[in-house]
Design a protein around this nucleic acid. Structure first.
Lengths: 220, 220
DNA sequence: GTCTATAACTTGATAGAC
DNA sequence: GTCTATCAAGTTATAGAC
């Protein structure tokens, strides 16, 4: 189930450390994370982060010489928490590998509805705002996308022979990410869930056709 | 061919007016457009816009009381130029309605490659950066997406009976937009064209299956 | 409509005591 | 590691002459 997270147990300590970090540094990262998510990097001032974290200027710059260094740490946090906070709960609720993909998508759907489209994909937002900034930031974003893509690809690989052999699992997983990010963007712009749902519906239809495909005799 | 742009001839004057506008106002909008595209709204200062346009502060604020008003005008410009600058050239090069859809997608692909991923989708960038800003801005973004969606939907409608009747043209067009925006985002993050191509490939396969299978079932 | 000068404020970042 | 005080530069926006 977790071939791709072989070092998961080793990660566990770090996860607790990251998720429940109430140190000055940890509070700064969490405050920055929330503000960047809601407002973006540029719109968020250092002062806002300081206020939200209850930290003084001197302390911030002791840990993070530049505002951008904070962003790098935020991206690191997203990466660390992906499996324990996003993927594992889905994998526990749902067993069928294909259903798991749609449950991951459903997680983003719920976020859109619950926040009334004020929260988008944290990574996607930063991807478009920051991709021409430092290479370290862009790499952190790419790493996050790769984490998601890996999780989804794992599902398709776990589906085994239910998917025709000719289907490229890697590309299909990328396509799921594409649909997710594009769907979130349109849904937020329209403030309607339909564009997101339309994308997922198309994906569902497409995959169900693959599962029931001609060269596939024992499909679901 | 242009059922959806019935007032096109009437638009023509406005298009020329907008595209070749070298007035102070026009230069301001064009300078702002280029800078917003490359840097985003927040990162771009009014001073930069002024320098690029060769205009003084007083003139800008004579036309646009707020920086955000400039953005609204930029979005208006994108909307006005969509057909003459993007859609019409594609429709002239390519006749087959399905091929037209992929030629539209190919336009974005070329932009990604030519600019080495520094330019993304102008609307997509602003959508994620500004969707929680004023409602006027968000509406301008939604209007632009709608323009693109309409053009793509037109193609699918022009495909007539080649597409099974059960296929929802509207949703399929939205799905194309979703794929385009998601693909652009991932390609920029990775600085590789493959994620974009993967999405388009999947879309192509999906649509070719729709075109081929007359007994294709389960519209949604 | 356009110009110059500048107000009023916020920005990211630093210095140095503790 | 954390505090206060503060800097220099940059920010959006305005005033008033022409």
């Amino acid at each position: 189930m977790k071939d791709l997270a072989t070092d998961y147990q080793g990660l566990a300590d770090k996860v607790v450390e990251v998720a429940e970090d109430v140190s000055t540094k940890g509070r700064l990262v969490e405050a920055a994370r929330e503000l960047f998510l809601l407002q973006g990097f540029e719109k968020t001032s250092v002062k806002e982060i300081l206020n939200k974290a209850g930290v003084n200027s001197g302390s911030l710059y002791y840990f993070f010489p530049k505002k951008e260094d904070l962003l790098v740490e935020v991206l690191e946090k997203y990466k660390t928490l992906l499996w324990p906070m996003v993927i594992d709960p889905v994998f526990q609720r749902v067993n069928d590998p294909i259903d798991r993909v749609f449950e991951i998508l459903n997680g983003y759907r719920q976020m859109l509805e619950m926040t009334q489209f004020t929260h988008g994909c944290p990574i996607g937002n930063l991807a478009l705002e920051m991709s021409e900034r430092s290479d370290l930031v862009r790499q952190g974003i790419a790493d996050n996308f790769e984490g998601w893509q890996l999780a989804v690809r794992q599902c398709f690989e776990d589906a085994g022979e239910r998917l025709p052999q000719c289907v490229d699992r890697d590309k299909l997983a990328t396509f799921v990410l594409t649909t997710m990010e594009g769907g979130v963007m349109l849904a937020r712009a329209y403030r309607r869930i339909e564009p997101f749902d339309d994308g997922v519906d198309m994906l569902r239809l497409y995959i169900s056709q693959l599962l029931a495909g001609p060269e596939n005799n024992s499909g679901n």
